[in-house]
Design a protein around this nucleic acid. Structure first.
Lengths: 238, 238
DNA sequence: AAATCCGTTGCGGAAACTCGCAACAGCTCT
DNA sequence: AGAGCTGTTGCGAGTTTCCGCAACGGATTT
């Protein structure tokens, strides 16, 4: 069995390599890549189907790499291994995981035993395994009141990029007023006016981005990726 | 000699401990804290004057911890050890370092040898040592055209928190129009209109925050800290 | 001392944003 | 079928933001 590790932090990579050798004795070869682009290349080259993937990497992040890997070989098993329990990552993964492929999401703060368990479950057994810590995010207190639906999230991304209402409407195929309604519910759900002093009037748009970052609904890599999507859309528009 | 390590990532901490023992044989005791608050406490308790400090930590980040430590014992020697070369961190450190105390800033991607060198230089010799990689930031291409001055940076922080022009003016003691002038130069320096399609009209405020994050002029921890400052100011205002 | 430069400030208009009100369409429940 | 709910859309008013124009004051140069 061949396994690919995609991880840019040297310490984490060697720890991982260690745990992997310990947990999966039948691993014959361990490949290593230090960023998403190299990871894609390696997976393609060596025909690898079991991958441990860091999410936060410079040149190309784990989600983008996973997307192309899954596009080429949907049966690949990928265990995501990340520092943060960011909702942004979860949404990104949920959007790209093929129907019947195995994947997992585990935090770097998890114990060595938990990591080894996840390695076996996902890479060998082909199960789906999500760290409880992370799963908690998905339904924030069962209250759908604060949970963003997909169209709200899409508008949030566009807002975060700095698009104006009119352009968001065009891009997402909504009317101007509908976009504004989405914004209103974003303001509500992200508690844009109530989190600081009640009497303060803020710039709601900026505050929304600020709150989305603070609550880990968005993170900088997501913004980066969203910007690339936007550029592609812009290129196709004219 | 006693040294305190403040570092929340277990792998990094043990690597650091290793390198430290190797580089500084006359270290008698190594203390360890997993976040800024614990670090402050430990430094106070044990009367420590040589510290290696991670910047990005959950409960209380390295800069805040360093501020209180330096406030209590200005001669403390602190080597900051961070994943990222973010301008935000540099500004934070520059703002709090006492006149004649030793400090350093080195990246986690630096080689073991470089780390050991920095440990000796800062903690033992009391030198000031900044990773070249980081120093490059400080004067982005010698062109002060893109460099933000302090008052621009202050306005950027307020903008990022979502404050309106009027309130920024009040907080920073400027007229409304002056605040707007600062904003204009921020838009200019962060290339708010030219980085995407030239013809696109964007929401400049949001785009400014987006660009500041993308260029690592700001990061999420900085926003967090700025928010706490703001709350303190608000409390004192009424 | 005069000329020049640069940052600050006020004024005013165009554009964008927030949001209440109301009409409307599709749906679910009885 | 009718009542009620929910999401979409248009209109319009009040704010906020962006920014050109111009006046002013202090500092520097000639």
């Amino acid at each position: 069995m061949k396994v690919l590790l995609v991880e840019d932090d040297q310490f984490h990579a060697s720890f991982l390599q260690d745990a992997l050798a310990e947990a999966l004795p039948d691993v014959t070869e361990i490949f290593h890549a230090a960023d998403g682009a190299a990871g894609e290349e390696e997976a393609r080259q060596s025909g690898i189907e079991a991958i441990v993937m860091d999410l936060q990497m410079d040149r190309r992040n784990g989600i983008e790499a996973a997307r192309t890997i899954w596009a080429e070989r949907p049966q690949s098993r990928i265990l995501f291994w990340s520092n943060y329990a960011d909702e942004a990552y979860l949404r990104g993964i949920a959007a790209i995981v093929p129907d019947d492929s195995a994947y997992g999401y585990i935090l770097k703060t998890a114990s060595r035993d938990r990591l080894k368990l996840a390695l076996r479950a996902v890479l060998v057994e082909g199960q789906i395994m999500v760290d409880r810590e992370i799963h908690r995010l998905q339904k924030r207190g069962t209250a759908p009141r604060t949970r963003l639906d997909d169209s709200e999230f899409a508008v949030l991304l566009d807002l975060a990029l700095g698009l104006q209402d009119r352009l968001i409407a065009e891009r997402r195929g909504m009317s101007l007023r509908t976009v504004q309604n989405r914004l209103l519910s974003l303001y509500e759900k992200l508690e844009v006016h109530s989190d600081l002093d009640e009497r303060l009037t803020l710039n709601k748009r900026v505050r929304t981005l600020n709150r989305a970052l603070a609550t880990r609904t968005l993170n900088i890599e997501t913004l980066d990726a969203a910007q690339r999507d936007l550029e592609a859309w812009l290129a196709g528009r004219m």
